[in-house]
Design a protein around this nucleic acid. Structure first.
Lengths: 337, 337
DNA sequence: TTCACCTCTGTAATCGGTTTCATCAGGGGA
DNA sequence: TCCCCTGATGAAACCGATTACAGAGGTGAA
């Protein structure tokens, strides 16, 4: 069964020899079967079967002047928030026969150098950026392949964006809280320079304005559970607390809620909390978290599809806004008298 | 500043022409600078600077007979458990100049076909498999590059494994519960055919045996929050409940705990719960979850390093066992009288 | 019969690097 | 002075595909 010489994997040449045709014909049989005759096609397919041939992607990519891969750049792979977006991206790319390459932007000192190296046509055919804190210059060089931004966005970078409707999300949260009777509504925000946080700040302020209210205290966090906990400690130490808090993500909301309960405060009796994202966990907390649902998988698939269109030369909208919705659960209630 | 003709990205030929040397010398300057003379090297580097040249990876890969990428196969990218392992893998690969390609094994009908296509030397230089439910045959074909298994493992596949010490983890949980005075200890396990679950079953049974006890009721879940919730409902309906439950992961523990509390049961007063994994959330739950800590990032880095060694032709251990530890928090207490 | 045209296939150039092998200049020893 | 050796470099083969171009053979119309 085995040849006596070392079993090399088959080349297109081997297939051609066995089928009694040229390599050109083999190539055509695979990429454009209609233009080869019935009989030849059968012979070639048989030879492929016999040899177990599969095309060498490096060679194909070189010749076709592409790489077969899309690079997704996320600030922190370990963060579950990003992983679901990646999953959506992966689904779409798989269907298009493209590899999903992932890169962590939380990289060492030579970060900029690394990024420039990543954002290169010879490494990937396109780029999906999930990190709004990167240097826009990197993506404006001529070597950089097409870019799509998702969730966050980079100031000064003109690449298409796929975003959740952050303003509206903040508005939904405020409307809900005001509807319950809250008037002193605080905020647990992300970093000041974060574009998401800015969009939600603005939606938050405007929605309060519509009700004739102004923002109460603002705490700054970094989207981590731990920073929610820290904010809770500040809150506990304050006098004249707000009666509700709108948090920039569920993880901070969760960290805050845990710390408050530990200190003996009741949620929602003593304080209402609204999160953002609707991570899977949120509905399983006690109390289950009221939150603004952000369809992360859809964000990923939309971003990937936008990028594919761009690669096909189709015109794409500069901004795609994915709708959000409010999931009312148990962490919000009318304020105590 | 711009040439009047279209700005092509520079080729090695362009650099060679400008530096007044052959392409061979340019290549050598980049891959093995010591063998070119000082003056030549300077001229080449200057020409590279001037042209903004960077090597074409497809061409380099073709010539070097490699792909520059490692493929990680995970059952579900959206699952935060895997994302932290991926993050560890990413760290190591980045240092080695390799791309991390990720693939979801939760793919459609033609799954096997897809996998065979993935597990191919021309797509990746190596494979890290995080899914124990795959067909071993796929990875035993001659086209398949070196494989390392991490966390889970495939029955009948001889590739090196990097595993948490599951038996010992289960033992730690049992010892802790028995130490608190529990004698009727139940289990919320993963799917019966899952290798992790089997290892923990065995550790669980053996540890109980050491204390002269036998397992109480066993619920089956699928590692999801929802399945924890379902198990809780079964538990609530049962008479003669166990006084403690050892769960196969924190998410199921969390789903169970939420449902129990909702039904008015107190954790740990009425039932003690131990999880497995120590996901970040666990310490922020109320009550904070007692759990077996599994160092996920370390699992990822170890797996990646093992694979790199294998690619270098170094002999690697068939099984690397990463130690686990018990994090005692608030979800466990002595049983009620 | 001749010519235009169509279908199918093969030849060879090409993608952009790396590496083997040959060459050449210069230095040191006999 | 001659020869050998070493270090630096260039010419050309090679990696494995794709595709422009050309040619062979067949068909149908004039």
């Amino acid at each position: 069964m085995n040849e006596h010489r070392t079993q090399r994997t088959a080349r297109i040449k081997d297939v051609a020899r066995i089928a009694g045709v040229s390599t050109a014909t083999v190539s055509r049989t695979l990429s454009n079967p209609d233009i080869v005759s019935e009989g030849t096609r059968r012979a070639v397919l048989e030879a492929i079967e016999e040899t177990g041939y599969s095309v060498n992607l490096s060679a194909q990519n070189l010749r076709r002047q592409r790489t077969g891969g899309i690079l997704a750049l996320a600030p922190n792979l370990a963060n579950p928030f990003f992983s679901e977006i990646l999953s959506g991206i992966s689904d779409v790319l798989r269907g298009a026969g493209l590899n999903l390459i992932v890169g962590d932007t939380a990289i060492g000192d030579d970060a900029r150098l690394r990024l420039v190296d990543y954002a290169n046509r010879s490494r990937c055919d396109g780029l999906i950026v999930l990190d709004g804190s990167l240097d826009p210059e990197v993506f404006m060089r001529s070597q950089c392949p097409p870019v799509v931004q998702v969730c966050e966005w980079i100031q000064g970078l003109a690449a298409p964006k796929v975003l959740a409707d952050n303003e509206r999300g903040a508005g939904l949260a405020v409307d809900h809280l005001v509807g319950l009777g809250h008037e002193r509504i605080g905020r647990l925000a992300g970093p000041e320079k974060n574009t998401l946080t800015q969009a939600r700040d603005s939606g938050f302020g405007r929605a309060l304005g519509r009700h004739g209210l102004v923002p109460d205290v603002v705490y700054r966090g970094d989207f981590s559970l731990a920073s929610g906990q820290r904010a809770a400690e500040q809150l506990l130490g304050a006098r004249n607390r707000p009666t509700a808090i709108f948090c920039d993500n569920d993880e901070m909301a969760c960290g805050m809620m845990g710390a408050l309960r530990r200190a003996g405060l009741q949620v929602p009796e003593d304080l209402s909390i609204v999160g953002f994202d609707d991570i899977e966990l949120s509905r399983h907390l006690t109390p289950a978290l009221t939150t603004v649902r952000q369809p992360r998988k859809a964000l990923g698939t939309r971003a990937a599809r936008t990028l594919l269109q761009q690669l096909d030369g189709v015109d794409v909208p500069n901004e795609t806004r994915v709708p959000v919705s409010l999931e009312v659960r148990e962490s919000t209630a009318p304020p105590a008298r």
